[in-house]
Every structure is written in structure tokens, then in C-alpha cells.
């Protein structure tokens, strides 16, 4: 039976979760893997909670329903933890990566996180310091590369170079590469 890695992205409209889901798919393509990326379709409002999904596999993927039991949950906005159960459907092996400066604060009084493998990465700060905008998606992809074995950091960097290089200046491309690299380096399970 096919092994599919399933990722669920939680964010607010405007934080780049759909772009992150797509970029992750592009990285998978560059690694000769099969993939799917799709948002939970609905009204797109800036600031409203949104969900997006990515599936990655070494074989063709033929299931098209929403991801029910994600292996990886990426939370682009820690304030969502107050309103959305980001752990819904996750099993014991699920990994949660949260954009947060402070893991202890992010997890305080959150019984649903008990027993989960939780990682944090200061993705908003990294984004502000690299790309100069509060769009935390690229540092989170770097963090995903570190925490998972889905694809190597070099694969992500190459893809960012190729895809952004077509449209943007070297300065923008390098800032994004830094964002990915720092997400990779600064993600922490402590």
C-alpha cells in the first residue's frame, strides 16, 4: 500500500499558507516525488483562519479528500491555537510545528498538545529580519525540512532559487533563501 506523507497548514488569510503548500509541492516535484497541494476552499478573507493541505508520496496519489490524519501540522499563527484545534485528527506520531518565539508560552494550558512532538520556530521574526515582511511561510518550510525527512534543505533552497529567480531580483531571492535557512537552523524541540 502506498505511503503518503500528509501535511496540514493552519494560518490566517494573507500569511502565505496556500503559497507554502504550493511551494512544498514544487519542492516535491523537483525531488521527483508525487504531490498534491490544495486549500480548504472557502471565502478568502485576510485574517480569517484558513487551512491548506499538502500530500507527498513516492507513488501517484489518488485520494482527493481533505487530509484527516496529518503527519505534520504547521501553524503559521500562534494565536490560532486559541480558536482552532490544530491537533484535530492527529495520531501519536504527528509532529506539530508552531511559529512562536516561546514554546513554553505557546503550549501553556493546552492539553490537546500533550504527548505530541511539538517544535517551535520564530518564523515571523525571521521573516521580518530577512524578507522584511511578516509572512512566515518560508521559514516554516525550512523548519519542515529539518524536522521531517520529506526533502533535504538543499532541495528547498534550489527550488526557491528556481521559482523566485524567474520573477524577482537577487536581493529578494537571497532574502528568501536566508529565511528558509534560518527556519531550518532555528527550529527547536526544546
Amino acid at each position: 500500500m502506498q505511503q503518503v506523507t500528509e501535511i496540514r497548514w493552519h494560518a490566517r488569510g494573507g500569511q502565505g499558507a496556500v503559497t507554502a503548500a504550493k511551494m512544498t509541492a514544487e519542492v516535491a516535484l523537483s525531488q521527483d516525488k508525487y504531490f498534491q497541494a490544495f486549500p480548504e476552499y472557502g471565502p478568502e478573507r485576510s485574517g480569517a483562519p484558513i487551512v491548506a493541505f499538502t500530500r507527498i508520496s513516492n507513488e501517484p496519489i489518488q485520494i482527493y479528500s481533505a487530509v484527516e490524519h496529518p503527519d505534520y501540522v504547521l501553524v503559521l499563527d500562534p494565536t490560532l491555537l486559541d480558536s482552532v484545534d490544530v491537533t484535530a485528527g492527529t495520531g501519536e506520531c504527528a509532529v506539530v510545528i508552531i511559529n512562536s518565539e516561546d514554546k513554553a508560552a505557546a503550549l501553556e494550558a493546552r492539553p490537546e498538545m500533550a504527548g505530541k512532538s511539538v517544535y517551535t520556530v520564530p518564523a515571523t521574526r525571521i521573516a521580518l529580519e530577512t524578507i522584511k515582511r511578516a509572512i512566515p511561510n518560508t521559514p516554516l518550510i525550512g523548519a519542515l525540512a529539518k524536522v521531517s525527512s520529506i526533502f533535504p534543505l538543499e532541495g528547498v533552497l534550489d527550488e526557491v532559487k528556481t521559482s523566485l529567480g524567474k520573477k524577482f531580483s537577487d536581493e529578494v531571492v537571497n532574502a528568501n533563501l536566508d529565511a528558509v535557512r534560518r527556519g531550518f537552523e532555528e527550529v527547536s524541540g526544546q
Partner: peptide, 12 residues
């Protein structure tokens, strides 16, 4: 093709 499920999803 199916709306959104396929039309809006990225695949190979």
C-alpha cells in the same frame, strides 16, 4: 473535471 478538488489543486 471536478471543481476545486481538481481544478484548484496542484498536482503533477
Amino acid at each position: 473535471i471536478d471543481g476545486f478538488i481538481i481544478s484548484g489543486a496542484i498536482g503533477p
